[in-house]
C-alpha cells in the first residue's frame, strides 16, 4: 500500500495518488506518514530529473500533485510535521530581476530534499540578503537571476556579503537564465548550478544530507 503512493507520485499519476491518499485518510492512517511517502515520491522525481529522464514540466506537475495531496492531508493533521531539516538556505532572485519561475522550482526541489529554505522572493535588495544571513546563520546562499542585469546584481550582492564580514561563513551558489561558469568567476560565487537538481547536489555537498 505504502509503496503505491510513492510510485504514483514518482510516476506523476495524479488521480491514482489522490485516490490512495483519500483511502489512507479514510482508514485513519497517520497523515504524517502519508506526507512522508509523498516526499519519498518527490525524491524519486528529483532523481529522474537529474538523470534527464524527467524534464521541467514533470517537476512543475509533481509540485501541483504534491499541493493537492497536502491540501487533502492538512485538515487531518493534529501536529505540525516535525521532520528534521538538514540545514538552512537563504534564497532569492537578485535586485532588479523579478523572475520567479526558475527560482520557485529550485526552492521547491531544495525543500522536498529536506532543506529549510528561506525564500526572499524576487528583486531582493542586497542588504536584505545580508540581514537574513545574519539573522538565520544559514550556511548556504542561493542567488537566482534571469536577465543579463543579474550579472552585476549578483556581483554586488556577493561583494556586500563580503564587506559585512560574512563571506567565509557562507557558500554561495548562483544560477538561472544567462548565468554560466564565466559569470561565477565574474561575481565571485562559489558555484554555478545549471538546474534545480544541481542546486540540490551543491547543497548536499556543502551541508550534507546524502
Amino acid at each position: 500500500m505504502a509503496g503505491n503512493l510513492v510510485n504514483a507520485l514518482a510516476d506523476l499519476k495524479e488521480e491514482e495518488a489522490i485516490k490512495i491518499v483519500k483511502d489512507r485518510l479514510n482508514a485513519n492512517e497517520d497523515p504524517l506518514k502519508i506526507l512522508g511517502d509523498a516526499r519519498k515520491g518527490m525524491e524519486i522525481v528529483g532523481k529522474r530529473f537529474a538523470d534527464s529522464e524527467y524534464f521541467i514540466p514533470d517537476l512543475v506537475y509533481s509540485g501541483e500533485i504534491l499541493k493537492v495531496v497536502s491540501e487533502l492531508v492538512k485538515p487531518k493533521m493534529t501536529k505540525e510535521a516535525d521532520s528534521k531539516k538538514l540545514g538552512k538556505i537563504v534564497f532569492g532572485t537578485v535586485a532588479g530581476d523579478i523572475h520567479d519561475i526558475g527560482k520557485d522550482i529550485v526552492v521547491f526541489m531544495l525543500d522536498v530534499n529536506g532543506f529549510e529554505v528561506i525564500d526572499l522572493g524576487v528583486d531582493v535588495p542586497v542588504q536584505k540578503f545580508v540581514d537574513k544571513i545574519k539573522e538565520t546563520g544559514a550556511p548556504v546562499v542561493g542567488l537566482s537571476g534571469f536577465l543579463t542585469l543579474a550579472f552585476d546584481s549578483m556581483k554586488e550582492t556577493i561583494e556586500t556579503v563580503k564587506s559585512a564580514g560574512l563571506r567565509d561563513k557562507v557558500k554561495i551558489m548562483i544560477g538561472g537564465g544567462q548565468i554560466s561558469e564565466e559569470i561565477k568567476k565574474y561575481t565571485g560565487a562559489d558555484a554555478y548550478g545549471k538546474d534545480a537538481m544541481a542546486a540540490v547536489t551543491l547543497a548536499q555537498g556543502w551541508i550534507g544530507g546524502k
Partner: peptide
C-alpha cells in the same frame, strides 16, 4: 523596474 533596466514579464 528601475529606469536603467530592461522590461520583464509579470507571469
Amino acid at each position: 523596474v528601475s529606469p536603467d533596466h530592461s522590461y520583464q514579464c509579470l507571469e
